[in-house]
Each structure stands twice: as structure tokens, then as C-alpha cells.
Simulated assay, not measured.
Amino acid sequence: MSQIDIGISEENRSQIAHQLSRLLADSYTLYLQTHNFHWNVTGPQFRELHLMFEEHYNELALAVDEIAERIRTLGFPAPGTYRAFAELSSVKEVDGVPDASEMISILTQAHEAVVRTCRVALKMAQDFDDESSSALIGDRMRIHEKTSWMLRAML
């Protein structure tokens, strides 16, 4: 690849890319968790939760691509293995199949964890005048904040 000259130093782009990699890992882990819960939810709220989880994982599937492409735009490889995601993610995997209420609680906490990751990444992107990454991260943060609010309202 040719030299990148977008007005952000390579060192700063590297630091932003690392924070975006953490966001990508969180998002992909949350995607898998949400998809798992979509498949395995049961109970009186089955239909509502099944459909809601599907909306969430479809949105996350698009998001992970956008985040990975931003990392590539900054000139760095995007992580793409379970091992890398496990090392980078603040969203932890769940063993077994929790009941529907616990699924909602777990997903609420996971979305809030992604918001916290966004806050760190956003501050760095802003400090390095990376408006494109800032806009992407801000949009992601807003989506996860709203989703966690909606999930909390169901508890």
C-alpha cells in the first residue's frame, strides 16, 4: 500500500486503530451473543425477544463491517479471529442458555460495556482530530445507549 497522508500521524492512526479494534471486538462478541440468544430464547416473551434480538444482531453485523473498514482506512489490519476478539473485548461470553430475563440483563450490560469502550475511543479520536472516526464512534455509542435503555425498560 502507498503512504497514507490524511493529516493524522502514523502513530496517532495506530492508537486510534487499536481503540477501534477494541470496539470491533466488543461489537462482534455482542453480535454473537445476541444471535445466540435469538436462537435460544424461550418463554412468554419469545416472539417479541426473538424478533428484537434479530433486529439487534442484523444492525451489529453491518456495524462490524463499518468499524473494520475504518481500521483499514487508517492503514492497519482489522482483527478477525475469535482469539483476537477474546483478547480485545470487554464483552464476556456467556456459558449455557440463560432464561429470557437474564438474557435481557446480560445484553443490557454488554451494550453498556460497548458504550464505555466507545467513550475511550471517542476521546482519543477527538484528541487526534480524527473526525471520521469520531463520527463513527459517536454513532455507535448513541445506538448502544439507546439499545441498553430499551432493554432496561423490559426488566
Rank of each mutant, 00 (worst) to 15 (best):
Q19G: 10
I8L: 10
Y28R: 10
E11F: 06
Q45N: 13
Y57L: 04
I8G: 03
L88S: 06
A63F: 12
E55Y: 06
T73H: 13
I67T: 07
S27V: 00
I67F: 03
E66L: 04
L88I: 08
L51I: 06
R13Q: 04
S9M: 01
A63W: 04
I8W: 00
A63M: 15
T42L: 07
V41E: 07
I16S: 05
R47A: 09
E59W: 12
N12Q: 01
V64A: 08
F85S: 07
H50F: 12
H35T: 01
R72S: 07
Y31W: 11
R22W: 04
N12Y: 06
Q19S: 15
I8E: 09
R70A: 02
N40V: 02
F46W: 03
Q45A: 10
W39S: 14
R70E: 08
S27Y: 05
H56F: 15
L30W: 11
H35V: 02
A61V: 02
E87T: 03
L74D: 04
F76H: 13
L74T: 09
R13Y: 00
N36K: 15
V41T: 12
E48H: 13
F46E: 00
E59N: 13
L51D: 09
F46P: 00
E59C: 09
W39R: 12
V64P: 09
L32H: 03
S9K: 03
D26T: 05
R70Q: 03
G75T: 02
R70L: 06
F46Q: 07
H56N: 14
A63T: 13
T73Y: 12
A68T: 03
R83W: 07
A84Y: 01
A68R: 00
E48C: 02
V64L: 14
Q33E: 12
R72D: 00
I67N: 10
E10S: 05
F76D: 11
Y57V: 08
D65R: 03
W39A: 11
H35M: 00
L24G: 05
G75V: 02
L88T: 02
E54H: 15
Y82H: 03
N58V: 13
I16R: 01
E11T: 07
S21P: 11
V64F: 15
Y82I: 12
G80D: 03
E59M: 14
Q19C: 13
T73N: 12
N58W: 11
E11G: 01
R22H: 13
S21T: 08
L30V: 00
G75D: 05
D65T: 06
Q19N: 15
R13L: 00
V41L: 13
Y57W: 11
T81L: 01
E59V: 15
F37R: 08
E69F: 10
R22K: 14
Y31D: 01
L49C: 06
L51H: 08
H50R: 00
E87P: 05
